[in-house]
Design a protein around this nucleic acid. Structure first.
Lengths: 206, 206
DNA sequence: TTCACACCTTCGACCGTTCGGTCGGTATAA
DNA sequence: TTATACCGACCGAACGGTCGAAGGTGTGAA
């Protein structure tokens, strides 16, 4: 990580290999936890030797940063586009559904990354290093709360406590990192729609 | 932990002190993660010296076991009583509310323990040592799913996917370990009722 | 009521191991 | 021939855990 190659032809190969390595790290971090993972674990998971590994990750904590930043950056970007971009649905219900789908798709494609994020959240809250990741998370939550509040203002929704409703949906989706299996009974969109339907209409009969 | 005192008069003092020590450990584990916590951290948090600490905890991993077992055992016991005991509400809606309240109260009184549980869940799934804790968790989830299924059978509820609805509520409540503050805007029962209302009636207007 | 002794609590120096990280080197490919 | 990829021996620090000793404390025999 200290030295990405200057020659452009090699740059791509380096980037690809680095992503492979970081994905492998994310897998191990998700399984054993960041602090529970030793460098030797990462060596076993990547197939590299000690020196080769450090060539790509710089340090253990730098690897963690990249894993979380590569997760939250794109998520926030896509979420913003889906909710506030030119193609964003006009209704609050539509935007809520779009946001949740983007989010669940990120869980589907970055399951390990999300699991690591959930595991390390409390530590993330403290240290200044994580300000960017923290800021992205906060921005995402604001996006969600804003949809709910607009929905209430427009008369589309009747939410007793938007803050609590947002935390409820946040909990549902983030928790999926623990049980969602790509290729399982439900795919990402089905889970997203299921959650949104639950939140919109509830389960009481009649 | 190797040697609880034989004399009953001293046994109580030992137990009380042990709980103090374990609560302090739980606080640090919740903050820094189990693997991220060193024995020196626990020494600082308890005020004991190395030897004194080991007198009460046996080992770091034994402390973790006690923290999680003391969390899940009582939770399952109270939940079962609230839902299947003689005073259990007759309706599925009532039982759902009772279960969620018991659960949120446990989060309120054992916030650190719950946070540790959430952080270590993935590790817990693997090793055989954790079978009891894992079994308690599974039993709790069964309790919840059963309420939903009975509600459907009795015509009280209309749940498209009881499994998903259970996972949704599980996510909401477990996630509270990250943001719930005792003495904050909402108390445990208010959060529980808020979640259940959300799940029952949804937020769509009309 | 006293006192000696066994039990209990706490201490901190110490141990072997494992940790994250470095660095000088070799192989390879542009 | 030079920039890059990868290796593995090595390092100091920090880790979890042990242990013999010292000091208190409740208790039964005198």
């Amino acid at each position: 990580m200290a030295d990405p190659p200057k020659r452009p032809a090699l740059r791509k190969r380096y980037d690809d290999r680095q992503r492979e390595v970081l994905d492998a790290c994310a897998r191990v971090f998700a399984e054993r936890g960041y602090h529970g993972t030793s460098i030797d674990d990462l060596i076993a998971a990547t197939g590299l030797a000690r020196g080769g590994l450090y060539h790509y990750i710089g340090s253990k904590s730098e690897a963690l940063f990249r894993i979380l930043d590569d997760l939250m950056g794109p998520l926030l970007e896509r979420a913003t586009a889906a909710v506030e971009g030119p193609d964003a649905p006009p209704s609050a219900v539509g935007r809520l559904r779009a946001l949740t789908r983007v989010w669940m798709r990120q869980v589907e494609s970055h399951r390990d990354h999300v699991a690591v994020f959930e595991q390390e959240r409390r530590t993330l809250e403290a240290e200044p290093v994580w300000e960017r990741v923290r800021g992205d998370r906060r921005a995402f939550e604001v996006l969600l709360v804003r949809i709910l509040e607009q929905g209430v203002r427009d008369g589309e929704l009747a939410v007793a406590d938007p803050q609590l409703a947002a935390l409820a949906l946040l909990g549902m989706v983030n928790h999926t990192a623990l049980w969602f299996v790509p290729g399982g009974r439900l795919d990402a969109d089905e889970v997203a729609d299921g959650f949104v339907d639950l939140l919109l209409d509830g389960v009481r009969r009649g």
